[in-house]
């Protein structure tokens, strides 16, 4: 039972890690490429770390807490680095698949028209 759970977690983790890198290699612009590593890879590595925690906690040497530390750190830092990377890409004005937004947002009703400003 426990062996099957471990095998499932390890396979799922490795598969998600691979899918994340596949997204990094195959998608077509930087902003879509950002999705693969930041979501799929984080989930994959988290799953592998949970499998490792279960494996080392059930060997009869007490609960193993190293993995929890690594998992927490990864789950906190992955969004931060993704945010910084997106900011850097926007700063460098990388080409995007999405159409660029209008230069001036259309004035809502009740707002001052652009000519009056």
């Amino acid at each position: 039972m426990l062996d099957n759970l471990l095998a499932f977690l390890i396979l799922a983790g490795a598969a998600f890690t691979f899918i994340g890198s596949l997204g990094l290699a195959r998608l077509r612009d930087f902003y879509t490429r950002l999705h693969g590593p930041t979501k799929a890879t984080t989930l994959g590595v988290g799953s592998l770390l949970v499998a490792s925690a279960i494996h080392f906690s059930t060997r009869g040497e007490g609960i193993s807490l190293h993995e929890v530390l690594v998992t927490l750190f990864l789950f906190i830092t992955a969004p931060v680095s993704a945010h910084l990377l997106a900011k850097a890409a926007l700063h460098l004005r990388l080409a995007s698949l999405a159409p660029a937004p209008e230069e001036e947002a259309p004035a809502r009703q009740g707002d001052a028209s652009p000519e009056e400003r």
């Binding site: 983790g13 490795a14 890690t17 994340g20 890198s21 990094l24 930087f30 490429r33 950002l34 693969g36 590593p37 890879t41 984080t42 994959g44 590595v45 592998l48 690594v70 990864l74 992955a78 680095s81 990377l85 850097a88």
Partner: peptide, 13 residues
């Protein structure tokens, strides 16, 4: 930079 970032996460795996 994103490739390097993913590389270190995969190294942890």
């Amino acid at each position: 930079i994103l490739a390097l970032d993913t590389l270190y996460v995969n190294t942890i795996a």
